[in-house]
């Protein structure tokens, strides 16, 4: 298991060097192409206009620390009876540290029965993910959660 030769060492440097920052893989690919807060706020304005989102009703379940920045599970759930005259119309997911602020928009109907969906998303770096819910009465609700993207290792 000797790795004393220069060539082996070089190979190791390449392998581990790439690996040490693997969790930030997407970050390395697009180091400066990140949406900032302003970009996310601009998109939100496009989506909901001048309405001011209230806190509450919408819940966003995500891991506090991402295991894999390429595939981070998320579940958004909205407190709504989901009846024909009172239902959650759409949930928008935004991210304020990705190359683009938009993640997805999920439109429900009363036939959905339950205002909840799950998917998996990419996170270029540690950032806030936003869930913005629009109800059939026009009210808008939102929540944010921070997800850390770390180098990993060194645990326990």
């Amino acid at each position: 298991m000797s790795t004393g030769t220069a060539a082996t060492r070089r190979r190791m440097i390449e392998q581990v060097g790439a690996g040490v920052l693997a969790a930030g893989g997407l970050l390395l690919l697009a180091p400066r192409a990140r949406a900032d807060l302003v970009k996310a706020q601009k998109l939100m304005k496009e989506l909901i206009g001048d309405r001011t989102p209230q806190e509450g009703k919408v819940r966003l379940e995500m891991p506090q620390i991402a295991e894999n920045g390429q595939s981070v599970p998320l579940t958004a759930a909205v407190d709504s009876p989901m009846t024909p005259d009172n239902y959650c119309r759409v949930v928008h997911i935004l991210a304020d540290g990705n190359p683009e602020a938009g993640v997805c928009s999920f439109e429900f109907t009363p036939m959905s029965g339950r205002a909840e969906f799950s998917t998996r998303m990419r996170l270029a770096q540690t950032q806030n993910v936003w869930a913005v819910a629009e109800m059939s009465d026009g009210s808008v609700w939102m929540t944010k959660t921070e997800v850390k993207v770390t180098i990993g290792g060194c645990g326990g």
């Binding site: 298991m1 000797s2 290792g153």
Partner: peptide, 15 residues
């Protein structure tokens, strides 16, 4: 030692 990445080469640390 103890890199969490796959394919790391090198002698085991105890050696």
């Amino acid at each position: 030692w103890a890199s969490v990445n796959e394919g790391v080469e090198g002698p085991p640390v105890w050696e």
